[in-house]
Nucleic acid binder design. Structure first.
Length: 259
DNA sequence: GCTCATGTTCCCCT
DNA sequence: CAGGGGAACATGAG
């Protein structure tokens, strides 16, 4: 379930289990998921190196080793597991075998993948242009980023070049909390609406990062959005769905009035 | 069989 | 150039 908070959860998980561990070798049941090296070259590049403290930018997990770094993207179905036994899962695609256990990159649908980068420049080539991490955006920056933007607010929130880390679930959660209709053109948002959006972004990202996933709390759209006949957690109105920026938007027609 | 799914990219339009 | 729509990618669940 990888949006920003999930990847932050994986980052902490990697730090807890693998940081400081030396890579004895990698096993590669699915070489296709190593995107910019052969399995052999990847193995040679990481063998004998130790995991340093991992970082994250948007939905990208960055795992530095000595003199190089591993970039992980999880697509829609990726996650990490650490294990001290040898019972592997069907969708484990790449395994970093260390002295005291192994870190497994699991990805059922095989979107995303794993890359190697030697420096910031190579990292940028892999990730493409990314805006500031959604957890680091303040109100002024948010305004600056949104200012030149045309088109629907939901598309803007999900555009990784503007703000990195917000996906379909979080964008709907933010818009619902701010009471802004997902297809509202950014240009039509006044200062007040932008303020509500920024506050919602800040709160949703902050709380989600603490949980390591988008919470399914009482007052969260995410709790109900996948239910049949789902209703707004605030007012009970049946939720609506439409396609915006290629994704299914979920919104309350009463709380989030069109335009 | 069909539709839909937490992501990204590419192609064609306007 | 910016943005929208659709398809593609791969795999499973309902």
């Amino acid at each position: 379930m990888p949006e920003l908070p999930d990847v932050e959860g994986y980052r902490r998980y990697l730090a807890r289990h693998a940081e400081g561990q030396r890579i004895a070798r990698v096993d590669v049941p699915d070489p296709v998921l190593i995107r910019n090296r052969s399995a052999q070259a990847f193995g040679r590049a990481v063998k004998g190196k130790r995991f340093a403290e991992p970082t994250r930018h948007g939905k990208w997990l960055i795992a530095p080793l000595d003199g190089t770094e591993v970039l992980l993207h999880f697509g829609m179905t990726g996650h990490l597991t650490w294990s001290e036994d040898s019972g592997r899962h069907q969708h484990d695609r790449l395994i970093f075998v260390c002295e005291n256990g192994e870190l497994r990159y699991n990805n059922m649908r095989r979107f995303g993948g794993v890359w190697l980068a030697r420096d910031e420049h190579e990292r940028g080539e892999v990730t493409g242009p990314l805006g500031p991490d959604a957890a680091d955006v303040d109100r002024n920056l948010f305004d600056e980023l949104m200012d030149p933007r045309r088109g629907a607010i939901k598309a803007a929130l999900m555009d990784q070049r503007l703000v990195a880390g917000v996906g379909n679930l979080m964008s709907d959660e933010i818009l619902w909390r701010a009471r802004v209709h997902p297809s509202t053109p950014v240009r039509k948002l006044g200062s007040r609406a932008r303020g509500h959006l920024y506050d919602a972004l800040h709160a949703v990202v902050g709380e989600s990062v603490r949980y390591g996933r988008v919470p399914h709390g009482e007052r969260w759209l995410t709790r109900v959005r996948d239910d049949r006949g789902a209703r707004c957690p605030r007012c009970g109105t049946p939720l609506r769905r439409s396609t915006i920026a290629g994704r299914t938007a979920c919104w309350c027609p009463r709380c989030q009035r069109a335009q």
